[in-house]
């Protein structure tokens, strides 16, 4: 196992006074696909937002490539931010720009490539996610699945070492969702990316994740961690319920 690229150490996070997660610790190795899973409201997206530095932890730390994002500022923070790309749950594409321009924007702002090279790199990113023929479309003209693929292409624009994906399959039909899973797996293999994916889709977890961290709302933390197969065999009733898709109320 290679050195950890992300280290979450005794993290406590929440909103205002409300603690959502406490004493969360785990590591993600380079090249690994890690799924953050759990039921609705367990803090998956909150954890991811702390990992990407959108929120400051109440306690503990998140290190990306050995650097603490929350305490970093100036050039160091810029450098840490370049290490990862994020696909938000809604895609969060810039609605006034074409799909190609969405991918081109970070390259124009943060690379020294000339215009022709930027055009080529951006088009190849779209080719990778199967959207080359939709380069000139506005995000509103794309389907939900296409928007998510475009958002992945944008997140990959600067070839970050890590890709954070927030609920990539949410709201998609099973076929589109499976296509997106295959894309994520292909990217992890061909580009050697480390991927942290927030999901509650069992099919996705089995299809893409090397390991999974399972969170629980009541426990306010991790209740299981391991490969999808290990989690499926876990004897904790809360994990079993999740994997058997059982409701926890009578």
């Amino acid at each position: 196992m290679s050195a950890p690229l992300i280290r979450v150490d005794h993290l406590r996070c929440g909103y205002g006074e409300r603690i959502v997660l406490d004493e969360v610790s785990f590591e993600v190795s380079a090249g690994e696909v890690l799924a953050l899973l759990g039921g609705s409201g367990c803090g998956k997206s909150t954890l991811m937002k702390h990992m990407i530095g959108l929120y400051e932890p109440m306690a503990g730390s998140v290190e990306i490539g050995g650097d603490d994002l929350a305490s970093a500022s100036g050039d160091l923070r810029e450098r840490i931010l370049r290490r990862f790309g994020v696909m938000y749950q809604s895609g969060a594409l810039f609605g006034s720009m074409s799909v190609l321009d969405n991918v081109r924007l970070p390259l124009e702002s943060f690379s020294d490539l000339d215009a022709a090279a930027i055009e080529l790199v951006a088009r190849l990113k779209l080719r990778l996610v199967g959207l080359e023929d939709f380069a000139g479309f506005l995000p509103s003209e794309l389907s939900g699945g296409m928007q998510k693929r475009a958002a992945i292409a944008r997140a990959m624009a600067l070839d970050p070492a890590i890709l954070f994906l927030d609920e990539p399959s949410a709201g998609l039909d099973p076929v589109t969702s499976a296509g997106l899973d295959a894309l994520i797996r292909r990217l992890a293999q061909s580009q050697g990316m480390t991927i942290v994916v927030v999901t509650h889709e069992l099919t996705s977890i089995n299809a893409i994740a090397d390991r999974a961290v399972m969170l629980d709302r009541e426990a306010k933390g991790i209740i299981a961690i391991g490969t999808p197969a290990e989690l499926a065999r876990n004897e904790d009733i809360r994990v079993q319920r999740f994997f058997l898709r059982e409701a926890d109320t009578p």
Partner: peptide
Amino acid sequence: QHLIDALEPDKPLAGALP
């Protein structure tokens, strides 16, 4: 080489946007 193959170098790029 796997990386280059993923980009399908034999397939021509789509034309420029209007």
